[in-house]
Design a protein around this nucleic acid. Structure first.
Lengths: 202, 202
DNA sequence: AGATTTCAGTACCGCTCGGTACTGAAATCG
DNA sequence: CGATTTCAGTACCGAGCGGTACTGAAATCT
């Protein structure tokens, strides 16, 4: 006979973990991993250090969860772009999404995958490597999609799918850097348009 | 009657300030401003904290001087590119220089102007803004050069010089990000070549 | 040589960091 | 109701941060 629980025993948590994670994500996005102190994070989340550690583990765990949330939220344009029917539409949707997410009003400029950590001392290396892997995985996914496009015939047979993928990711990363320096959405949309002027014809 | 000094009175400094600054520049380049501790810096420079403060001011002053040295050294390709005869050659030299400097063996990957500080908490804001200004000044200089190119007739009269400048800077910034993630010189040279495929004809 | 000036080094300052032990209250169970 | 469990909050931990006072030696001047 198995013990059945109607709900978790004990006092339930008094805050919305999803909302707290959203707030934490924005602090990391704005200030980077090392630049975001636990005090910054917990005061934005509206909870105490104790609650944060109980709910999310530690600072690095919190960042990993914030990155996962970022991927499903602000960075969902990547997955959407990959589902576009042609290589050109994939590329266009990807860069336009990067522009919009990097310059969205009410959100920090740039991209969590770039601003989160680019260079760091020893204590920040795990997160730095996590983000480098995250960006490289994006290249891989785009590259797979473009290999498919070559098979489909909407990219020339002599195309370099991974090269095209890295090119787009490079431009998207640059857009994030430029957004951090104050470039506007119009500025960066022009950049995205220029970046596609040399795109291989179908 | 003016007092003449043959040399500075007192014990002369026992280290090469230029060499020390070069070492500091590389630490900032690799670890970023906030990620480079005074211990990291001074041990790489081979001097004590006291000597560093006497010779360079404080950590922020040291960074400013390291950035100036970076501009004259690894980033000298920018000034060289601006002196190329045509807009296309300017653009090509600029991107090729960004690729080489971001992937130079023996140097940290990327660009000090990007890796130095992209996102930061309150204490790092001055340096973050310094670098954003530095990047934007690069856009301005390229933009001035391309305006000249329009006058010279080696860019179409309806070109957007500042837009073209921002486009190149965006690609260069993206190259720095990608280099930090392990992209090789060959990878990034292909990216630079692709970025110029849509360049306006003379 | 003696006086002076700046050197390099140690030890320390107050502060903030990420992380934790401990307290007392609150909510759910039998 | 009483027992149990987890909550939120305070106060604190050792460590590292950027920066500085102080010491004694070394090198240049008159």
């Amino acid at each position: 006979m198995e013990t059945r629980r109607k709900g978790p025993v004990g006092r339930p948590r008094g805050f919305d973990a999803d909302e707290a994670l959203e707030r934490a994500m924005r602090v990391f996005w704005k200030q980077g991993y090392e630049g975001a102190s636990l005090t910054d994070l917990t005061s934005a989340m509206g909870i105490t250090r104790t609650s944060m550690y109980a709910a999310f583990g530690n600072k690095e765990d919190l960042f990993r969860k914030a990155l996962a949330r970022y991927e499903e939220g602000p960075a969902a344009y990547v997955a959407r772009a990959l589902r576009e029917p042609t290589a050109r539409e994939v590329a266009t949707a990807f860069l336009n999404g990067a522009v919009r997410t990097s310059t969205r009003p009410g959100c920090p400029p740039g991209c969590l995958g770039v601003q989160g950590s680019l260079a760091a001392g020893d204590p920040g290396l795990p997160v730095r490597n996590l983000l480098a892997d995250w960006r490289n995985e994006g290249v891989t996914r785009l590259g797979d999609r473009f290999r498919q496009a070559v098979d489909d015939g909407d990219l020339p047979p002599d195309s370099d799918p991974v090269g095209l993928a890295r090119y787009l990711m490079t431009v998207a990363n640059g857009i994030a850097v430029q957004a951090a320096g104050g470039a506007t959405q119009e500025d960066l949309q022009r950049v995205a348009d220029m970046a596609l002027r040399g795109w291989p014809p179908a």
